[in-house]
């Protein structure tokens, strides 16, 4: 029975609901011959006074109202029944002073063969390994997440510092304009001392078009442009595109930033694709 079909039925079908209900009720005309059963029981039963050791049977009270469909609860009930029964049985065996536990050096044929038990062990090990691997993966993911956060924090920090520096430079300039030389009173904290200030960024220079092979030189003073005197805008542009200067290969190569840039790619999940389509 599929849940959806059942659901459908309950939603839409009111006139022909549940034909199986009458079947689930106990049928009235079922035979129950209690006397006959008792008679048969008397017939086949062993004599009442036989030793318990012949039967080895124990009655254990099973707790009430166990949900049959709840696998865990059901199995637990059986387990407790068996365990309780075993306890009682062992108590009795002990009182009879019969050795009943198998000594560790007693080897005999088992119900399951050794090769089968090897398989069982392999399965257990495999499951353990799987669990461990999952755990490892989870940890790695967590670590990655944390690293990302840390990185973001760092970037923020850096931006903040930069802003602060620029501001301080501005302040210093203003002060110089206003009050001449600040002298010793002006607090210079550019961090020039640390050697950060004059570092040139190694990436692309600002203000240079991405296709510019001259690295921006042509715009200021193109060799051709100045020499011929003819230079119009188009010449300039063509110079930047085809002319000398700069390395040709570089603009095609990845640098550290562009390699990490995944904006050009799909995010990968189908969900994202769907969204984009919409």
């Amino acid at each position: 029975m599929e849940p959806d079909s059942e659901e459908m039925e309950s939603e839409y079908e009111s006139e022909e609901v549940e034909e199986d209900v009458p079947l689930m009720e106990p049928s009235k005309d079922a035979i129950y011959n209690a006397e006959g059963l008792h008679e048969k029981l008397e017939d086949i039963a062993w004599p009442k006074d036989i030793d318990w050791i012949q039967k080895l049977s124990i009655d254990v009270n099973l707790e009430r109202d166990i949900d049959v469909n709840d696998d865990l609860a059901r199995e637990m009930a059986f387990y407790t029944q068996a365990l309780e029964g075993t306890r009682q049985a062992f108590g009795r065996l002990q009182s009879m002073a019969i050795p009943f536990l198998r000594p560790p050096d007693y080897y005999a044929e088992m119900v399951k063969s050794d090769s089968h038990m090897v398989k069982v062990k392999g399965k257990l090990l495999f499951e353990k390994k799987k669990l461990e691997e999952a755990e490892e993966r989870r940890k790695a993911r967590e670590a990655k997440r944390i690293a990302k956060e840390v990185q973001a924090e760092k970037l923020k920090e850096r931006a903040k510092q930069k802003k602060h520096e620029i501001e301080s430079v501005k302040k210093w300039r203003k002060q110089r304009q206003n009050g001449g030389t600040g002298g010793s009173k002006v607090d210079l904290d550019f961090g020039f001392e640390e050697g950060e200030g004059f570092e040139r960024p190694k990436k692309m220079r600002p203000g240079v078009a991405p296709g510019d092979r001259s690295g921006g030189n042509a715009r200021h003073a193109g060799k051709f442009g100045k020499g011929s005197g003819k230079g119009g805008k188009s010449r300039e542009y063509r110079n930047t595109k085809f002319g000398h200067g700069g390395k040709k290969g570089l603009k095609r190569q990845n640098n550290a930033e562009s390699a990490n840039d995944i904006r050009g790619f799909n995010k990968g999940t189908a969900q994202a694709n769907k969204k984009r389509k919409r």
């Binding site: 080895l56 049977s57 124990i58 009655d59 005999a108 044929e109 088992m110």
Partner: peptide, 11 residues
């Protein structure tokens, strides 16, 4: 063990 006697428990 293969042929050891079982303890029977009944609810």
């Amino acid at each position: 063990l293969k042929c050891s006697r079982p303890i029977l428990t009944f609810s």
